[in-house]
């Protein structure tokens, strides 16, 4: 009688096999999802890092360009360029006898040159990405659960 009962409730071997395979597959899928997530985040971070590097290069290039354009502007407005241009346009240097001096109330002469510098960001060198976004799963597990209180 006991043997009959055991036989009645025993799982069929193919069912057991299916269950084991499914369990293995579920574990594998979870592992693959985690790996894929990990790979995706790593890929995105790497892309962002490379883009940041390129942007830094772009910034340096832009700074060089600004300096170059300032120098070019200085050249275009230099006396060597401006005086012949002024003459071409019909301007003449004034004859001292032709100059008329008048008093202009409130005018105290040409103001002194003030070069207003662009405000700096005061940025110091340091990591751009917050530590939370730079942790690996292992770092997170270790910090959260395995390192104990305060760890």
């Amino acid at each position: 009688m006991r043997q009959r009962l055991a036989q009645a409730y025993r799982q069929a071997p193919w069912r057991l096999q299916t269950r084991n395979i499914l369990s293995l597959l579920v574990g594998l899928v979870i592992l693959l999802v985690v790996a894929a997530l990990y790979l995706s985040i790593s890929g995105q971070a790497a892309t962002a890092g490379v883009e940041t590097r390129f942007l830094e290069y772009d910034r340096e290039a832009a700074q060089r360009k600004i300096a170059h354009l300032e120098a070019r502007y200085g050249q275009l407005t230099s006396l060597q360029v401006m005086l012949p241009r002024a003459k071409e346009l019909g301007f003449e240097e004034p004859n001292p006898d032709d100059i008329v001096y008048v008093v202009v109330p409130g005018y105290y002469g040409r103001p002194a040159y003030v070069e207003a510098p662009p405000p700096g960001t005061g940025r110091m060198q340091g990591p751009i990405i917050k530590p939370e976004y730079r942790q690996s799963i292992w770092d997170w597990l270790f910090k959260s659960y395995l390192s104990g209180p305060g760890g």
Binding site: T52, G122, R123, I129
Partner: peptide, 12 residues
């Protein structure tokens, strides 16, 4: 390392 990417400081 992209995770350790540094922001370049302003060089006056």
């Amino acid at each position: 390392d992209p995770y350790e990417m540094q922001a370049l400081p302003d060089i006056p």
